[in-house]
Design a protein around this nucleic acid. Sequence first.
DNA 1: AACAAGATAGAATAGCTATTCATTTATCAT
DNA 2: ATGATAAATGAATAGCTATTCTATCTTGTT
Lengths: 219, 219
Amino acid sequence: MISEPQRKNVDQRSQRKQREYEARREEILLAAERMFSQNGFFKTSMAEIAESAQFAMGTVYRFFKSKEEIYISLVEAKVEELLNLLREATKIGPTAPEKLREVIRVKLAFADQNRDFFRIYVSEWSGFEWTVKSAFGDRVWKKYLAQIDLVADLIQAGIKSKEFRKVNPKDTSLALNGMLNSTIYVWILQAGPKESLISKGEWLGALFLDGIGSGTTKT
Amino acid sequence: MISEPQRKNVDQRSQRKQREYEARREEILLAAERMFSQNGFFKTSMAEIAESAQFAMGTVYRFFKSKEEIYISLVEAKVEELLNLLREATKIGPTAPEKLREVIRVKLAFADQNRDFFRIYVSEWSGFEWTVKSAFGDRVWKKYLAQIDLVADLIQAGIKSKEFRKVNPKDTSLALNGMLNSTIYVWILQAGPKESLISKGEWLGALFLDGIGSGTTKT
DNA sequence: AACAAGATAGAATAGCTATTCATTTATCAT
DNA sequence: ATGATAAATGAATAGCTATTCTATCTTGTT
């Protein structure tokens, strides 16, 4: 028989163990993020990840059952994080255009703070190609589409309230996403943090809302 | 001594040889395009390329000195082709907006006709990451930037003529490019050729010129 | 202190693949 | 037809790397 105080101790201990387990796992993910963003998925070896995380290879395999699982975990966590941030963003601001600007700001800010990750995310779509079919990859893909849909809904609402003109919401959301990604990607490639990424948000919003036309040449 | 008629024969023979060489080389590139677009660079083996081209592996190496060279040759040829098409496009149409619409049409048409290739091009930016540093990859990267610059110049001209409002031409060109790429990419992923890609050109042009705003909410 | 039970290590395995090379086959001028 | 040159072949090489496995070490309990 175990006395009550003892059981409590045991519980706390195992809680700590759990926390430590998570912490180690996180370490590995961080190391993997560093390596993947530097060399891409295929040119990063488990040996490198293990070394970068300061674990032996065998240990890494106690946390993840394959290299692919590390990769997908990494991507999934980030995509989910961004999705949640975007959900919040669509709640801020009174008007649809304002919400849209907030979405742009949030995505750029996220890219700014997750530079390494974005190097994978934007540039390694290829990764998805071979992965979309796997169960894990499917989850990531769905979350990506959820991001698109979220903004599509926002656009849809804006159309109803006559704040936006009639467009196909999904196609438009996709186009916005492409605009942002290409901007982010080139910003990332110019290693030197010359210009703030976030500062481009305002004009990207303006571009998307008003186009580049001077207003006199509507054809 | 070789008589004149004989020399002529020799010349013609070697011409034919040259043509046949080119034809074989082309065969290999086509096979590589098929395989790369199906499985990406890393998951495509030389054995597969050789088999798909109906050559032995050793033979493939008579035409290309490495797998990477095949890949880069492929990408470079296509990027150059697109660049030339875009150059032509910027000459068509009287006004800047019209030229811009032509650029959009041309790029979408090119994607439509080079579906397999675009699957590599858009999705495998990762490829560039490891390759940009090599001499070959550098050439590809420069041609990519030349495409961006070409459209940036067009935008610049439109600003001067007051057809466009004042924007940063390069950033704007980049944004347009992203819009197109994301549209193309998703179109490619939906295997079934449900909707014509080219048909999206008109509204993409409209979106880019006029934005999605209803015109009443300029902030 | 001693003993499980769990965690870590990293060497060994197994399998794959880019590239080379010795051989065979085709081409072609004589 | 023949010898020489060029082209094509595909088995062998060499090297890499994801994953496994057993021995070693840590931790926590009695």
